[in-house]
Design a protein around this nucleic acid. Structure first.
Lengths: 206, 206
DNA sequence: CAAATAACAAAAAATGTTATTTGTTATCAA
DNA sequence: TTGATAACAAATAACATTTTTTGTTATTTG
């Protein structure tokens, strides 16, 4: 029998505590109303001490966003690493990202706004997140090409084309614009659009 | 020899004058800094009189936006009415809209912002504009289907699919997000994406 | 009558002031 | 040495006040 997992979770390290509290503040009041002093107070410390962990308010926001986006990337990696055919994985990854974003938009609209803002301002958090997703997709694409599943002359171009065609379902800003369109409808359209784009990719005629 | 066209243009009607001045104010300072009193002053009248022509500031903004978007619609209609094959026209319309938007973004970024805002807020101006573009496209689509060029079971669905796939190049908000990507690159990607989407449409397998 | 103005209340924006917050640094305690 | 605090200047937000703007309506002008 393995050693029992400690029932009481270890006392979180301060940076994680601050991060969680900050996320909660954003969830409740939105980023513009978050005050470092208030977060510090909730954490039972002076505001100055928060700066030991996060060099600036923006850095704190970025950390909140990054943390909050991790599950999306994890789900993506999960699929990418599964032993299924590359084509299927590609489809599932894109659909998964769309669904995850939509879930997150509905669960935490204020944090989603933070995410969108970072994209609109072209800041590093958003860019890095997208790069990580793209890397997973690129990996699957390579795998598919290696196995002779995709016949692609210019891979880079192919990837760009797929991203362009499914942009509406992968771009947080676009997804937010469609927030009032029923989920079922958006999901169905996403599925169809992804399938279409990938069929072209598979046909290799680009 | 035909009668000479009057050299001096007819004195513009007041509403057009006000519209032009308002557009210029938006161009210069952005919508948020536009003051009805200032426009009225430029037009040489009291601000109260502006309300004889436009019932509210929002109505004035909408009129500016609508006026400013007319050339996009005109170009679209021009193509739709040409005697070319439906397939070609469809492609040219979408590409034309993308190019027009991009031109306008570069020429009048502040008015473009006004347009984007109306889309983001789901206001009538933006919706009507899009509806008019869609109507032209639908017309061409019908034409193509009638001539046996497209084999489509569910037209409504087909149109939605094409719009989804070229969304990045047709949505003003998306285009603005890509404002720093070189035009030549965006244009090339637009062309490829449109061609891809339409090929699917032509194949009829949806 | 059509086109404009003048005058007005309500809403919004600018202003100036005070209080809070941000971010740094020097200091303290374990 | 690590984790915290206290104290501080500069930046920001909050707030009350004044001014401008918006939108209406009654009145004038040609």
């Amino acid at each position: 029998m393995p050693a029992p997992i400690s029932q009481k979770p270890l006392p979180e390290s301060q940076d994680v505590r601050i991060l969680d509290l900050a996320a909660e503040h954003v969830r409740r009041f939105g980023a513009s109303r978050l005050r470092i002093v208030a977060v510090a107070q909730d954490a039972g410390m002076t505001h100055g001490n928060v700066y030991r962990y996060f060099p600036s308010k923006e850095a704190l926001f970025d950390a909140v966003t990054e943390q909050w986006l991790k599950p999306v990337e994890a789900a993506c990696r999960m699929i990418a690493e599964s032993p299924d055919p590359a084509f299927d994985k590609l489809e599932r990854i894109i659909v998964s990202v769309h669904r995850s974003y939509r879930d997150k938009l509905e669960a935490d609209p204020k944090i989603f706004d933070l995410f969108c803002q970072s994209m609109e301002e072209g800041r590093a958090v958003g860019r890095r997140h997208r790069t990580r997703l793209q890397a997973e997709i690129q990996r699957v694409l390579d795998e598919g090409t290696g196995g002779g599943m995709f016949d692609i002359s210019d891979q880079r171009r192919a990837l760009a084309l797929v991203f362009d065609a499914v942009y509406r379902f992968m771009s947080p800003v676009s997804i937010r614009l469609d927030k009032d369109v029923p989920r079922t409808q958006m999901d169905a359209r996403c599925d169809r659009c992804v399938r279409l784009s990938l069929r072209i990719l598979a046909s290799g005629k680009i």
